[in-house]
Design a protein around this nucleic acid. Structure first.
Length: 932
RNA sequence: GCGGGAGUGCCGGAGCGGUCAAACGGGACAGGUUUAGGACCUGUUAGCUUAGUGCUUACGAAGGUUCGAAUCCUUUCUCCCGCACCA
């Protein structure tokens, strides 16, 4: 077998594609448009890695596929070239980020071209180009105008290694997203924000329309975190303090309040008496709380103040707690320990009362059977009562089936000693007291009956039964707690006039009453925060603002854009732009007085939030883009990228689209209709590929050794593209082998006759493969392509089918298919040809082939068997088939295949040779056979 | 804790109500070819059985729905990923 000269072929076709501008497109086409987009790469110095090779190959396959299907496909590429790594390299190696970036890009481009990706290079976009980031600045000014961009002093996440602040989305487990070992600190700084929360609702609702993986949609929903609830006003010292809750139905169970330790108005609540204690508490949690990724212990301290319960007017103590978020809701919560796990933990720790106000239906009945020596275990098991624990003194913890509750009551009334009691918990805690005279009293525990129960209990056992004692007991024994402490909905108890209401009704009712009293209203809350865009770094888009002592923060006029990055700055000591004095000092655009430029730059996610639009009109120097062009190409029909971008990039890009739409520039709501997330390429040992582990496989090296087509084919053959997979050298070799066979077959191609069977198989394959590609099931499509090849590799097929086959393979292996397509006599590029059409499919014929295959299998099996058992070689094969199937069995080709004499008979052929009556074994679709 | 996904042969992985002992690859084994190795070709690869078309177990575990389940439902175990004190 000849080895393919990949390098030569690759070079040849790269040049042809370039010379013919094969993949350059314009909006002046009659074909329908289709926008395929890969997330543009950050050009790092290390070059393209296998992960890149994989994603972009997926994109290229899809772009080529759509192109062949007759779409006007926009498949652009660019570089997300602003960003921290370039700057950090600058610090480390001493090069300027610009140089570093230029080198990286050069390196990238070479590799990208080698992979055979069919980009429209004429639309290349680089975000570090002032002609690009000029429009970042322009959008910023527009946002400022519309009140979307604003500046405020805020507690921000600070990473000591980045020497910059981070967006909320960039904080991972309390650490920096790029530096896992760098704890994020809280600093208070004046920073620029984008009011993404204005679009929270739309960002949430828009998800329904998108053809995205469920996982991605769910993650975004979760990130936006909309929750419906009620704002309830608690009065503290006559002042109103609203809090947010999703469970107003538990309002009557509030036993204390907790305010966040980071609350900005915390000290207004703390009394002078408690001040010292609170302060030392604050100090303590500052030093301990930070790194805990596990749930941290709930801790707190009494503030000294009390809040007024909006319904009962009762005084509720306020605690300062470490577990309440300052920036969610209002930074204070009403604590309902019976129906919130965190509140319960806190209540237990600080011995605060717990009041159950929601009762669940249909939960098992539990009882603690004290004393009751006359009741033996058999009595209980007879009633199907489960004894879960027995104490030394004969007490039993039991679970009673709901329907046996009456029987249980009867049993204990009969057998309980006079002058004793039993309590159990069904929907409520029920006490059965059996007096000395035999009278039985049944009392349900609530606030009113508490005193009476207390009295009776002390009469009976001589010591006081109090609620606090029960709670202590509960805490120690954990027996009833799961029935009382729960977060479920149910019916209200212990809630005065709301008793008996369902949670849902109670929510409405209580909200209504609060609203009437002006002490509350229904409201919504989001987890989503405004986007903090200020970064104290150099290699980003300068924020176009000039500070003036007289005029304040003045936007740079549009005509003065772009505000270019100064070249001469000092790296490594704080914010580099601070060191560019001649750049920093400028005139105030308003009063022409002394002005000072904003030295912060924008988060680089700003660039990727709209780059896809610039591709539609990349060289426009007058506008951000031509509206007509942009609206012709967009929205993106198929977006492809990593799962790590779901909560950052993909939220921001949607936000930007909505803002630009509101500016009147765009006509759509959602920028990316379909989104595909690829899996991660891991090393063959299942670990991440990394230099330190020494398990990295370099795309470029692989290309040199096996060819780009081999690499591309192998990458999609590993498994489903959206699942992670491990690198496997064998699959690479297998792919290479296959391509060699294909190359051999077609490079020496002589057209055969048209064949119905091959047509049929081809048509079926086209149908299935098209579907697979459409759904990104490339591993399956490749298998079908291989099977298709297997089916004809020993015969001559006609030119039409040959071309169809090459086109199917082309999306995966563009180079050799171009080469072979040319060898078939085509002058035009296969890249710009047409996807094969599905012709008529004869399912019957396919079945007939299947049955032929099965028969061949049978024959092979028996040949082996005879050889093994009798050590005889078979020389003649007789096949018996249904009369209508005879035509499917061509004895000549079978003779050739087995290199033995083959005779085919219809089962009803009276002249057939059949000494053992094997014809009787024949069934429709399966032949009978006899060998000798 | 919450949310998502997955558990199939020696391995990677198809199948997602009957056509399944399970595509396709890899590995292993046997045979052919070859000076040998490699490469290539042919076949076998749950168990039993019969010269194949038969039976029995199998699709993490246990139940259920159905004439029929790897496929649907319930419970449970394990693993992976994302979010995480969001009131």
């Amino acid at each position: 077998m000849a080895n393919i000269h990949f390098a030569k072929i690759e070079k040849k076709w790269q040049k042809r594609w370039e010379d013919e501008k094969a993949f350059e497109v314009s909006e002046k086409s009659k074909k329908p448009k289709y926008y395929v987009l890969d997330m543009f790469p950050y050009p790092s110095g290390t070059g393209l890695h296998m992960g890149h090779a994989f994603v972009f190959t997926l994109g290229d396959i899809f772009a080529r596929f759509k192109r062949l299907q007759g779409y006007n496909v926009l498949y652009p590429i660019g570089y997300d070239s602003l960003g921290l790594p370039a700057e950090n390299a600058a610090i480390k190696v001493g090069t300027h980020p610009k140089e570093y970036t230029a080198n990286s890009m050069k390196n990238f481009m070479k590799q990208q071209k080698a992979m055979g990706w069919s980009y429209d290079w004429s639309r290349l976009v680089k975000t570090h180009d002032p002609e690009f980031y000029k429009w970042d600045q322009w959008i910023f000014l527009k946002m400022l105008e519309k009140g979307i961009a604003y500046r405020k002093k805020a507690p921000v996440n600070w990473c000591d290694k980045c020497l910059s602040v981070l967006a909320n989305e960039q904080v991972v487990n309390g650490c920096c997203w790029r530096h896992e070992d760098s704890e994020v600190k809280i600093k208070h700084l004046e920073q620029w924000f984008f009011k993404i929360t204005n679009y929270a609702d739309e960002l949430l609702e828009g998800l329904d329309k998108l053809d995205w993986p469920d996982r991605a949609k769910k993650m975004q929903r979760n990130w936006i975190g909309k929750s419906y609830g009620t704002e309830i006003v608690f009065k503290i010292d006559g002042k109103s303090w609203p809090i947010f809750t999703t469970r107003p139905d538990t309002l009557m169970g509030v036993t204390f309040m907790v305010v966040s330790a980071q609350h900005s108005k915390l000290m207004e609540i703390v009394t002078t008496k408690q001040k010292k204690e609170v302060e030392s508490f604050l100090k303590k949690i500052k030093t301990t709380s930070e790194k805990d990724s596990d749930k941290l212990n709930k801790e707190g301290v009494f503030s000294g103040s009390y809040a007024e319960h909006p319904l009962t007017g009762e005084k509720v103590p306020i605690y300062v707690g470490n577990f309440v978020l300052a920036d969610y809701g209002s930074g204070m919560v009403m604590a309902v320990p019976a129906h919130d796990q965190r509140d319960f933990e806190f209540a237990q720790k600080y011995k605060l009362p717990v009041v159950q106000v929601i009762r669940r239906e249909n939960v098992s009945v539990k009882s603690y059977l004290m004393g009751a020596s006359k009741i033996n275990d058999e009595d209980l098991t007879k009633l199907n009562i489960e004894i879960i624990e027995k104490t030394e003194d004969g007490d039993r913890k039991i679970i009673i089936p709901k329907d046996k509750l009456n029987d249980y009551e009867k049993l204990i009334i009969n057998k309980l000693d006079n002058g004793f009691w039993n309590e159990y918990l069904s929907d409520e805690i029920i006490f059965l007291f059996k007096h000395k005279n035999g009278k039985v009293e049944r009392i349900i525990l609530d606030k009113k009956s508490e005193e009476k129960i207390d009295k009776l209990a002390s009469e009976f056992i001589g010591k006081k039964w109090t609620k606090s004692c029960v709670w202590k007991w509960l805490a120690e024994n954990n027996f009833y707690t799961d029935l009382i402490i729960h977060e479920d909905f149910g019916k209200l108890i212990n809630s005065g006039k709301f008793n008996g209401l369902e949670s849902k009704e109670a929510k409405e009712e209580i909200s209504k009453i609060l609203q009437a009293k002006k002490l509350g209203k229904k409201t919504v809350n989001y987890k989503l925060r405004d986007w903090l865009i200020s970064r104290q770094r150099y290699w980003g888009t300068p924020i176009p603002i000039i500070y003036c002592d007289k005029c304040g923060a003045v936007p740079v006029p549009e005509k003065d854009l772009p505000v270019k990055l100064p070249e001469k700055v000092k790296f490594g000591k704080g914010n580099p732009l601070e060191t560019a004095n001649s750049w920093k000092e400028t005139k105030c655009p308003k009063c022409s007085g002394k002005g000072r430029r904003e030295t912060d730059t924008m988060d680089t996610f700003v660039n990727s939030s709209w780059y896809y639009l610039r591709y539609t009109d990349p060289k426009n120097s007058k506008e951000i883009f031509d509206k007509k062009k942009a609206n012709y190409w967009t929205p993106i029909d198929q977006y492809i990228g990593g799962p790590e971008h779901i909560t950052m990039h993909l939220i921001y890009i949607r936000f930007y689209a909505k803002f630009l739409r509101d500016l009147g520039l765009l006509k759509f709501d959602e920028p990316a209709l379909k989104y595909f997330t690829q899996g991660i390429v891991k090393a063959s040992d299942g670990e991440k590929m990394s230099k330190s582990r020494g398990n990295v496989v370099e795309p470029l090296e692989t290309i040199e050794k096996y060819g780009a087509d081999t690499l591309r084919l192998a990458l999609v053959s590993f498994g489903l593209p959206d699942a992670d997979f491990n690198w496997n050298e064998k699959i690479l070799l297998g792919s290479n082998k296959f391509l060699n066979k294909v190359y051999d077959y077609f490079s020496d191609f002589k057209s055969g006759k048209k064949d119905v069977k091959i047509d049929n198989k081809m048509n079926k394959s086209i149908e299935l493969i098209t579907k697979d590609i459409e759904n990104f099931k490339h591993n399956l499509a490749v298998i079908k392509i291989r099977q298709l090849f297997d089916s004809f590799q020993n015969v001559k097929i006609d030119k039409n089918n040959a071309e169809s086959f090459l086109k199917l393979l082309h999306v995966y292996c563009p180079y050799i298919t171009e080469e072979l397509y040319e060898k078939l006599g085509n002058k035009k590029l296969i890249s710009l040809s047409e996807w094969p059409k599905v012709g008529k499919i004869d399912e019957g014929l396919l079945k007939a082939e299947e049955s032929l295959e099965k028969t061949i299998e049978d024959i092979n099996y028996v040949i082996n068997l005879i050889k093994e058992k009798e050590n005889k070689d078979v020389s003649k094969i007789f096949i018996y088939v249904m009369p209508n199937e005879v035509e499917n069995f061509d004895s000549a080709s079978l003779t050739k295949r087995f290199n033995k004499e083959v005779k085919v008979f219809a089962v009803n052929d009276s002249k057939k040779y059949d000494p053992e009556g094997k014809a009787k074994k024949a069934k429709p679709g399966r032949a009978g056979i006899y060998l000798e």
